[in-house]
Design a protein around this nucleic acid. Sequence first.
DNA 1: CTGGTTATGCTCACGATGAGCATTGAGTTG
DNA 2: CAACTCAATGCTCATCGTGAGCATAACCAG
Lengths: 323, 323
Amino acid sequence: MSGPQPIAIGLNAVIVAVTAEVPRILTVRAPATKPPLDALPFGPLEPATDRTLDRALRRWVGEQTGLGLGYVEQLYTFGDRERDPREGRGGSRLVSVAYLALVHERAASTAGAEWRDWYEFFPWEDWRRGRPPVLEEAIEPALERWAESAPDAAARRERRERADIAFGLRGVGWDGDRVLERYELLYEAELVEEARRDRAGRRAAAPSSPLLPSRAMVLDHRRILATALGRLRGKLKYRPVVFELLPPAFTLLQLQRVVEALAGVRLHKQNFRRLVETGGLVEGTGRQDLETGGRPAELFSFRREVLRERPAPGVGVPYVRRV
Amino acid sequence: MSGPQPIAIGLNAVIVAVTAEVPRILTVRAPATKPPLDALPFGPLEPATDRTLDRALRRWVGEQTGLGLGYVEQLYTFGDRERDPREGRGGSRLVSVAYLALVHERAASTAGAEWRDWYEFFPWEDWRRGRPPVLEEAIEPALERWAESAPDAAARRERRERADIAFGLRGVGWDGDRVLERYELLYEAELVEEARRDRAGRRAAAPSSPLLPSRAMVLDHRRILATALGRLRGKLKYRPVVFELLPPAFTLLQLQRVVEALAGVRLHKQNFRRLVETGGLVEGTGRQDLETGGRPAELFSFRREVLRERPAPGVGVPYVRRV
DNA sequence: CTGGTTATGCTCACGATGAGCATTGAGTTG
DNA sequence: CAACTCAATGCTCATCGTGAGCATAACCAG
């Protein structure tokens, strides 16, 4: 079944927490990279002892970081040959199954690992303070140059089309879920470090735009991260996953801030309240939070029964309309 | 990285077509099963030559069936130890990446393979002629016995709760997307052949209900199939994937029938027309289909531009309301 | 007590959706 | 050829979810 080149299989974890309105992911320092690079936690599947892939993940995350994972979801399996430059030169082909895990704010015992702001890797994804300036200043002109540099008119048109859809340009609205599409486009246009690194040694560089200011990762880990953010944003809308990131009792504003942090957009406060309250997602506890700075807020908790009542309960994050 | 027991990796394909209002999947005959069993097409990843997993899939599907795949999407990676009974007894651990592929009606050159009605495997999923009788006649009472047989009151309550949500019982509505959840529940309750087969040799049988009338598959292939149907039903709503299953020009009723076949529900004709027309999903070609049996229908084609205009264009399949 | 701050309540306009009636245009039938 | 059948197509209406904003309540700091 396996050819002359052997296959190795491993698991990657995107572990997410939200603290102080910042979505964070757990990263480790990659062992032997010259400018030290972030990597996603990685661990093996022990075929003899791990009954399932999930369990393998929980096992080694526990061993490596002491973290007990709650919500865990399989994301995607990455198996491109080019993902690891050592492959094809004697190394074995590495297939990696990526998982998304959500943990509560507090669970933060992380030996040897570091929490990083998700948006350091994707600055163009955070629209909470309006449209990120990097779009207008760097991404739009660079993508335009990239489209312009296509060999023929049809290819140029196709590139512009893709850029418009991914980044919501020229009358197309911004779709928060297309995180992966955007990252892959930037990779193709060689605007992220990984693209140039992977290309090194192959064909000569096209006349290229400067790299975007953003944090790179080893191998294709930033692609995995983009997959995770996109999936999480999509899932927010039809499954009550936010609550995995919150303490058992919270104010509605805290809830809203976590959703906003992940969705990367600001929401209308009163409508958000109406949505989660009339949607039956939360129930008041009667207790209050007096630390709000204004009128005390009631503490709410997640209403599990909502799963019985509505087929797709989630916090409807609106699309950003045409610009 | 791999322990004493080696890991093998392979790809499974769920290849879907819709003909004559029947959603069909391509199956092969499993080599050595005593009552001959259906299996999903399976092929290896050739680590030395297959650049990506997608390409590996397309390659061996082409080699085995002559079928050229269009739309292809990764579904899920299955790696439970129990998926293959030979594992742990000298066999290697088999991890399999499952893909969903959609092909046009006509592309049907299938040497050695057979197209099977998807609903033979999941008779409870087809609500087009109303609520499937098997629910009331067999599933509901069997699930009730299963819940009843739980060790304590809390477990009984939890089992009923899960059954209610999955199958839309006691005031919960039927959610077409929960195909996998339903199959897994039936597996746990040992109402499908696979569950009894997998259990054979382990603990003694609980007092069990008769098997449901439905077609079984090898290993965990029916679970993969359930994953595929659920994913496809979900995707219909926010991505224009139906068109992958249709010829370039079609009448609106043909389109509707394909959606209904997959969603497993009947739709309101006029509203469906309004949805796809005002949603900009299709455009008239000016040509007509005279074979309708009534007034001739205009032939439509998919409007690719819709991807530019709307963030989540799909055919909104309604939930079935509380019963 | 006053202004600042946040929580919470409520209204209004609008577009999307579910349901059904009405009409059109082909083939079929006496 | 008029009546009839069968779908396709056009249109209306009630309802509901959603975006936006005004208004009021309840705490704190000065």
